[in-house]
Design a protein around this nucleic acid. Structure first.
Lengths: 338, 338
DNA sequence: CTGAAAGCGCTTACAG
DNA sequence: CTGAAAGCGCTTACAG
């Protein structure tokens, strides 16, 4: 490993200027296409950069422009099939606008505002539900940081744009489907983390459906799913062990549905013959489950795109939509009985 | 949105110095703990920073130190349950060392070396198998960029550290299990992308096992799985439609196994009674499949950690291990017949 | 169309 | 233990 100590010789804008016989100002103008440059000068510059293998230093540029060209994403976790399409959607629009992405899972909050310092050096940030305490969000807002909330509405007193989906309506719809089409009456709600706004809304939608059908709401049927395979499996397993009286399960998300399906299978309970199962999110995996999962399509990729666009808006000083609610769609497969 | 135009008033090291009644040099020393600072000076500095809400500008610091404190990760895609634990493992060690992560999926290669320019501004990069053309890797090496390869060995003529796992051996082992324990003889290989070194090695391991058992290698049994649910499902579906003669499937990775299980289920073929299925990777999901998947555990998180550690080594000018091969382990569940 | 010069906000020898 | 000053590599009015 003799090369491990080798330093990359740093080519600067001065080297390029010298080789092309112009000033650094001209090189800069050419680089940023923000000023006139004569045709033949262009040629020489192009050549010089190629010859020298020139790459502008981001740090110097940031310092001069006071922009980092980076956007931060705050996630509660990087795990889960949900985040991949979300990040992917975000990346599509930020990359097109020339921004890089700094991804941070909320595990090391060390800045003066309980934020990783790196975040202060981004041009804006995208904050996913529950990844940051509400008062931290508020302080960032007061400091004037640009940000957009995802799957969470703006804290009281702030005007932070947010992008969410029809959590409550869609939940009501899928549960109503269970009741009306499949005649289910004892429906278990495998609820997500109560601190998540979307989890709360989905549980409310479940109650709405019950109410609309004149079914009584039984708190005993509401279990802890945690948006998590393992937690959901354990929850249902325990439930099955002590009770038998249910004919369907609505899980807060598809991940929980994976756990529910596993628990049911291990207990020898037939899906959908004995028990219907429906999820939420329409993650890529859901079509491959056995049986294929009936769920609610959430345009996750689009959520990411939209949030990124609103943030870009904000950064440009334009007026983004304060609230965006994206539509969902019922995806009927086999696990409900269809 | 009156605040959208508001500028964050930028507090600099000079403001802190002024308020604490010292020079910027002293503030810097305090900040970086790389020089003596009197006890009472410390106190005043601490207070001043708090009062002013001071956050050092990363750009200025980078420019002065010529270090970005960022590490780049190059992935072919961000999709798949494989990458999450990988990134997570990487993050654990880089975060502890004070580095941020810049994640790049190889879709926009625009720098002079077919690399996103942002990558040149990192202090080092982690390159996952097949995310970068070999000659790009070579050029980066020649430029003296610090990097470590994951699941791919160093190109000829280079001394780039790489971190891989026992792909060939483990494949042989799991296929042998199918043959010896479950008496399988017509084993389909659902191969990964042939450009992936690990996919090639897994197919070699499959052949090794056949050879060792005295079974003849039948190229017709090698299908295209692409490390992908959908591709694998389509491949097997077609295979089933025209042929019936197989009693097991070894998939190049667990994702492909998901597709295989789906195809089998739709064709009404019983697993493991009629056909055994085994995967590779031991992704989180595999335990939740129906039936639970027999697979090979790959310490993905540890692969990430190790690669990150080697990179940190390289960046410090130390001598990292040129080749690290991490051990795997057979995970027996129900899909093979156990 | 082009250049000289100030400035962005840090760090780092060097002197004291 | 502390400060003055140069330097990191860009960008951006301003003048020509």
């Amino acid at each position: 490993m003799t090369r491990s100590n080798s330093q990359v010789i740093s080519i600067t804008i001065r080297d390029v200027a010298r080789r092309a016989g112009v000033s650094v100002a001209t090189v800069s103008r050419f680089l940023n296409a923000n000023g006139p440059v004569a045709q033949d000068t262009r040629q020489r510059l192009e050549q010089a950069m190629l010859d020298l293998n020139y790459v502008p230093k981001a740090a110097a540029r940031s310092l001069a422009t006071r922009q980092s060209r980076m956007i931060g994403i705050f996630l509660s976790s990087i795990y889960g099939d949900f985040f991949t399409p979300l990040i992917s959607g975000i990346e599509e629009v930020t990359a097109a606008a020339g921004f890089d992405l700094l991804i941070s899972t909320a595990n090391q909050l060390n800045g003066p505002q309980d934020l990783p310092m790196a975040m202060f050096n981004t041009d804006g940030m995208l904050v996913f539900a529950d990844s940051l305490p509400v008062n931290t969000i508020q302080r960032c807002y007061e400091l004037g940081l640009h940000m957009v909330l995802i799957q969470q509405s703006a804290p009281h007193g702030t005007l932070i744009p947010s992008v969410t989906i029809e959590n409550r309506q869609a939940s009501r719809q899928v549960v109503s489907h269970l009741i009306e089409v499949h005649g289910r009456k004892r429906i278990v709600m495998m609820a997500g983390p109560s601190s998540h706004e979307d989890a709360q809304l989905r549980t409310l939608g479940y109650k709405d459906a019950l109410h609309a059908a004149g079914l009584k709401y039984d708190p005993q049927l509401v279990l802890t799913g945690g948006f998590d395979r393992q937690i959901a499996e354990a929850s249902l397993k325990q439930f099955i062990a002590q009770n038998w009286d249910f004919d369907a399960v609505f899980t807060g998300d598809d991940d929980a549905a994976v756990g529910v399906l596993a628990a049911l299978s291990k207990a020898g309970i037939q899906v959908p013959e004995e028990v219907s199962v429906v999820g939420f999110d329409n993650q890529l995996l859901s079509a491959y489950l056995v049986p294929p999962l009936t769920t609610v399509n959430v345009p996750i990729n689009q959520v990411g795109q939209t949030a990124a666009r609103q943030l870009l808006c904000l950064m440009r000083g334009e007026h983004p939509n304060l609230v965006t609610v994206l539509p969902t769609e019922l995806v009927l497969r086999h696990s409900c009985g269809c």
